[in-house]
């Protein structure tokens, strides 16, 4: 598992870095444009916005409205910020495949550059939460795993389960598993509150605390099996299932052999 997860991390490392790099560039441009009023970056930015607008018109406007003002089936995106777009589109939740209970995580439709363009466009409509920079996501350095666990159990475990495996909400909705979710997306989910999830403000859970939460989730994700098969880490239900199948099954099997006459 460790080897596997390392591999996975390796495989994922490239794209993640790429995405980080792109967003760092994107956000630096924004910051730079504000500070330096650099003409080239302003031009770049408006080009990105235009690209994003075109993508939006093609892929999103049928539900969210031509000007992202929202419609009957989809909310307005004015003021949701780049972070929200990056989360929803970057995790493949948007565009939605079907309009049933909730948007599911799936392979993203847009590549990182296009996601950035869409995010920049939506962010240009009205200010909202920014995509966190790679530098600000150094949870290994800035987070504390034990504090993160405490925060996770108080704020997250009620929906996502004690080991971040996900859980049931009402009417078929569910809190997804957090295994294998990129730190950036976890962070964005906390600041934007996608779908059923509430927002966790920076004042009630500070950015540093958010990094601690991410660090704890990553530690739980990479934790090897200390006591054998994890049985899904969902508590006593699977344990009961195992004892009623394998446990009593083995014992009854031996009992049948024991009582069978030898030939």
């Amino acid at each position: 598992m460790k080897r596997l997860s390392r591999l996975r991390r390796h495989r994922a490392a490239g794209p993640i870095l790429l995405i980080f790099a792109l967003f760092t560039i994107g956000t630096t441009f924004q910051v730079a444009s504000a500070v330096n009023n650099d003409t080239t970056s302003v031009a770049d930015r408006s080009a990105t916005i235009e690209e994003g607008r075109q993508l939006f018109l093609k892929g999103c406007s049928s539900c969210h409205g031509i000007n992202a003002e929202g419609g009957e089936i989809a909310p307005s995106l004015i003021g949701v910020g780049a972070a929200s777009v990056d989360f929803q589109v970057g995790t493949g939740r948007m565009p939605m495949a079907d309009m049933s209970t909730q948007a599911m995580r799936k392979p993203p439709v847009y590549n990182a550059e296009q996601v950035n363009a869409l995010a920049t466009y939506v962010a240009s409509l009205a200010p909202g939460p920014q995509v966190p920079s790679e530098e600000s996501l150094n949870y290994e350095r800035d987070g504390s795993v034990a504090d993160g666990g405490e925060l996770f159990r108080t704020n997250c475990a009620m929906c996502h389960n004690f080991a971040a495996q996900g859980g049931a909400l009402t009417q078929g909705k569910y809190a997804p598993t957090l295994m294998g979710v990129e730190p950036k997306h976890i962070y964005e989910a906390m600041i934007t509150g996608p779908q059923s999830m509430p927002v966790f403000s920076d004042k009630t859970i500070t950015p540093e605390e958010k990094l601690s939460i991410i660090k704890w989730i990553k530690s739980a994700e990479s934790e090897p099996q200390l006591g054998g098969a994890a049985l899904g880490r969902v508590g006593p239900v699977t344990e009961g299932l195992l004892v009623w199948t394998l446990g009593i099954g083995l014992l009854v099997g031996v009992a049948v052999w024991l009582a069978m006459k030898a030939r």
């Binding site: 509150g193 927002v199 403000s201």
Partner: peptide
């Protein structure tokens, strides 16, 4: 945890 007091403006709409 944290024991920090909270101002109304600390909470966005949709926040808990």
């Amino acid at each position: 945890p944290g024991d920090r007091p909270i101002r109304p403006e600390d909470l966005e709409v949709g926040a808990v």
